[in-house]
Amino acid sequence: MKTNHIQTTINGDVTEFLCNADESLLDVLRDRLGMTGAKEGCGTGDCGACSVTLNGRLVCSCLVLGVETEGAEIQTIEGMANGDNLHTLQRVFLEEAALQCGICTPGILIAAKSLLEKNPNPTDTEVRYWLAGNLCRCTGYDKIIKAVQTAAAEMRGA
């Protein structure tokens, strides 16, 4: 299988990698680049644990090929905090116990951030539908929805 050389920008850093044509962006992030914040819960786009943004669009990195990302801008959970300063969503998720096991948390944070960039003042229903592709099996979603709303309110005020 021919190996491809790809150059992208990940969390603002120009990043080069080699990958086979059938490798997903998730495989590239985890296996080639050591960025294990995006998780594989299904590999088929049904759980959202591998969520990243690709050129500003929320996607499942398991449904993107590494070879497709030439020249793309990718944002992952590893780039969400600014150094030691957590993003508001990250901090509020901790303060409001919006995670239990934490495996879905990176994907949910990336998805929630994407929502609030598009819609800073969503209704609960809008949050729930936006996050419908992010499965969480621990929390029953209640505290996640509330934390997104708390963070949204704080970010609107900030």
């Binding site: 786009g45 959202g48 969520s51 690709l54 669009r57 929320l58 996607v59 499942c60 449904l63 993107v64 998805a111 994407s114 929502l115 936006w130 996050l131 419908a132 592709g133 992010n134």
Partner: peptide, 9 residues
């Protein structure tokens, strides 16, 4: 069709 993520693609 699919989730927000799937809609992105």
């Amino acid at each position: 069709i699919g989730s927000t993520q799937v809609q992105g693609r």
